[in-house]
């Protein structure tokens, strides 16, 4: 059994969002980078739990990025996983990135591919689906629970107002979100062992870019809060009804 977990580098959740170069590039100055939380807390930790239960599982991590993503992938390896693969390419186009991951997956012959539900920077939620299509595998998006029974997975996914439970044969691709696993903090042993785990760098395969970022913008600032006295909450209801017209 081989599992591949897709890891992405994102700005920290508290990073200041600003743009440079005439609003075409994210301002990276002073930004702390982290493992995309969905990739780390849910996809990676669930894969590590599966490996803890069945040590014969081979767990690989993959990222698509320049050399500056290596500290992030080492951090991920400190949590767990046997080795990592970095595809040496940078792109903001999901099809290009998915094509790279699909190629790594083809070479490695994985039974299970996990992604986070989306990255917290581009909020695309599309890499898992694209990889699944490129590999012609089933795809379960927004999974909240995952159990393996031999070569079949039992997966719970989010649906409107509830959840759906399904059984799917391997190989398959799953996008993971809250519920899959609990956040972990790497321990010293993990951090030390991550330094010597293999981190392979592969060159990208030829792939098209289907979209481009024309520019960024920030939403208009709020006009400021209108405070209603605590002894007159009925006034709030009047404002919501007559002024904001939302109730």
């Amino acid at each position: 059994m081989k599992i591949l977990v897709c890891i992405s580098k994102t700005p920290d959740t508290t990073a200041k969002i600003a743009f440079t170069d005439n609003n075409t590039k994210f301002a990276q100055d002073g930004v702390q980078w982290i493992i995309n939380p969905y990739d780390e807390w849910y996809a990676l930790v669930r894969a590590i739990e599966l490996k803890e239960k069945d040590p014969s599982i081979v767990l690989h991590l993959v990222t698509v990025g320049a050399a500056d993503t290596e500290p992030i992938i080492r951090k991920a390896l400190a949590l767990g996983g046997d080795e990592a693969i970095r595809v040496n390419a940078e792109s903001h186009d999901s099809y290009y990135i998915a094509s790279q991951i699909a190629e790594v997956a083809r070479q490695g012959g994985y039974d299970l591919i996990f992604t986070g539900r989306e990255t917290i920077d581009y909020n695309g939620a599309s890499i898992g689906g694209m990889v699944a299509e490129l590999l012609d595998m089933p795809y379960i998006p927004l999974a909240t629970k995952f159990e393996l029974n031999g070569t079949t997975a039992t997966i719970t996914r989010e649906i409107e107002g509830g959840e759906e439970i399904c059984e799917v044969p391997l190989p398959l691709v799953v996008s993971c979100q809250k519920g899959m696993a609990e956040q972990r903090i790497p321990n010293m042993k993990g951090i030390m062992s991550a330094r010597t785990k293999p981190l392979k760098v592969v060159e990208p395969t030829a792939a098209d870019t289907l979209t481009a970022i024309a520019g960024f913008g920030l939403p208009p600032a709020k006009a400021g809060v209108k405070l209603v006295p605590a002894d007159n909450p009925a006034e709030l209801v009047r404002l919501l009804h007559e002024e904001a017209k939302v109730i």
Binding site: S94, Y95, A98, R117, N123, G124, A125, S126, I127, G128, G129, M130, A132, E133, L134, Y139, I140, P141, L142, R157, E158, I159, E160, S175, D208, L210, T211
Partner: peptide, 24 residues
């Protein structure tokens, strides 16, 4: 719609048709 099902199909269709996707 970029809802639970749309997130499952739209990226797949994009890859299948090599069509640029704008999610969200």
């Amino acid at each position: 719609s970029n809802n639970v099902d749309g997130k499952g199909i739209a990226p797949r269709l994009a890859a299948r048709l090599k069509a640029g996707l704008v999610p969200g």
